[in-house]
Nucleic acid binder design. Structure first.
Lengths: 209, 209
DNA sequence: TTCACTACTGGACGTTAGAACAGTACTGGA
DNA sequence: TCCAGTACTGTTCTAACGTCCAGTAGTGAA
C-alpha cells in the first residue's frame, strides 16, 4: 500500500466525515466546493489517485458511488456489524436479486455469525419441503445464501431448476459437478448442466413454530 | 404513525439491505429494476409514500440521498431490536445465567426472528453430539434457549442431567412429563423427576463449518 | 356508482454528476 | 535542462438521476 499525500489524506477524511455525518457520499463537485477548487476535475484527480492506491472504490458512472475501502489488517471493528438479510419464499427466475415479489421480510444478524464479508450479496431463502432432511434442513428453515461464491464439494447450494429455486448438495464426482438431494424420495443425482447455482448456504436460522 | 403496506415494507427492506451491504443508497431506478418495475416512477411513488409516513428522508434533487428514519414511539424503537445472545458450550450446574466460564461468544440477532420478548433471559447453547438428530439439530448448531418458560409437549428443551445440559424433547404422556432423545441410539424416555429444565428452544442458528 | 387509495406503465424534462480533454504551475530529482 | 509527479483551472460531453405529467387497473368502502 502506497503512502498518501497530505492533500489526499484531507480528501479521504472529508469523504469519511461526510459519510458519517450526512450518511451521504459527496460528489466530486461537493468535494471541490469544500476545498475551494473551482473545477470538479481537481477532486476527480485526487479520487482517482485514492482509487489507484486502494483507499477508495466506486462504480464507474454511478452518482455518489464512492466507497471507503477498509484497510484494517487484523483489526476488528469495535461495534459488531449487523446486516439485514431479506427473505424470499421463492425466487422464480433470473438473478437472485431480482423479482422480489416473494419477499417475506427480513432477518437481522451479525456478520460474525454469518461468516461473510458485508459487501457480499446475501439473501435468505425460506425452505419449502423436506428435500434436504438428510442435512438436517427442514421445512420452514431460513437458509442464508451467499451469492457469487464458488461452491466446494459438499456445500449446500441454492440452484435454479425449472424456474424454481431448490436446495441441493453440490458434489464433485470425478471432477464433474452434480447436485444431490438429501432425501431418498428424491432423485439422487442431477447433472449440473444448464443449472444455475444461485449461491452457497452459509448459515441457517430456524424459528420456533 | 401510519401503517405500511406490504409493498412499502418490501421497498423499505430493500433500501435497508442495500445500505447495509453495499453502503450505498439505491437510486429510484435501481429500486425499480430490482422489483421489475418498468418505470422509475413506480419506485418514486413508494418512496414518496414512505416519506409522507415518516420512514424515509431525502434531499430533493440529490442522487442517492434517501435516508432511513429511525422511529421510536414512547421509547420503544419501531425499528427491529437486536439482542446479543451469549453462547455456552456447556452449563456445568445451577442456574443457567451463572458460571460463565464456558462462554463461547455471542450471536446477535433480532427479536423478530427469535420471536421472544426482549426482557426474557435468553442464551445460546452449542450443541454437542447427535442426540437430537431426529429434530434436525446437529452437532455444532447453536440453539437459542428461552429461560423460565413453561414447555409445551413437543418442545425441545435444555435439561440438566447429571450436571450436564443436554437437549431433549419435552413430552406429556398421560399427563406425566417425560424427556425424550431424538436418536434411536439413546434411551427413549426419561421420566422428568428431579430434572431441571433450563429453558425452551425458541430458535436455532447454524453456521457453515 | 362514485370516490379514495394503492400500484403500477410510459414518456419526458431539467438538473446532477462522473469523466475526459486541454491547459498552467510548482517542486524535486537526475 | 529535462522530466515525472502533484495540484490544480476551465470547459465540455454524456449518462445518471429525481421529478413530473398523463394514463390504466384493481380494490374496498361510502
Amino acid at each position: 500500500m502506497k503512502e498518501l499525500t497530505e492533500r489526499q489524506k484531507q480528501i479521504l477524511d472529508f469523504i469519511r466525515h461526510k459519510q458519517d455525518f450526512d450518511k451521504l457520499t459527496p460528489t466530486l463537485r461537493e468535494i471541490a466546493s469544500h476545498f475551494r477548487f473551482s473545477s470538479p476535475n481537481a477532486a476527480l484527480a485526487h479520487v482517482q489517485a485514492l482509487r489507484v492506491k486502494g483507499f477508495l472504490k466506486n462504480s464507474p458512472g454511478r452518482a455518489r458511488s464512492l466507497q471507503l475501502v477498509n484497510l484494517r489488517q487484523g483489526g476488528r471493528p469495535l461495534a459488531p456489524q449487523i446486516v439485514s438479510v431479506p427473505i424470499y419464499g421463492a425466487i422464480p427466475a433470473g438473478r437472485p436479486m431480482d423479482a422480489e415479489q416473494e419477499e417475506e421480510g427480513c432477518v437481522l444478524i451479525d456478520v460474525d455469525t454469518l461468516g461473510i464479508k458485508p459487501t457480499t450479496r446475501t439473501f435468505g431463502l425460506k425452505v419449502h419441503g423436506d428435500s434436504m432432511i438428510g442435512k438436517s434442513i427442514i421445512d420452514g428453515d431460513i437458509v442464508i445464501i451467499e451469492h457469487g461464491v464458488q461452491p466446494r464439494s459438499g456445500d449446500v447450494v441454492a440452484a435454479l431448476i425449472d424456474g424454481q429455486v431448490t436446495l441441493k448438495t453440490f458434489v464433485l464426482q470425478q471432477g464433474k459437478p452434480y447436485l444431490r438431494a438429501e432425501n431418498p424420495r428424491y432423485p439422487k443425482l442431477i447433472p449440473q448442466e444448464e443449472l444455475q447455482i444461485q449461491g452457497v448456504m452459509v448459515a441457517l436460522v430456524r424459528r420456533r413454530k
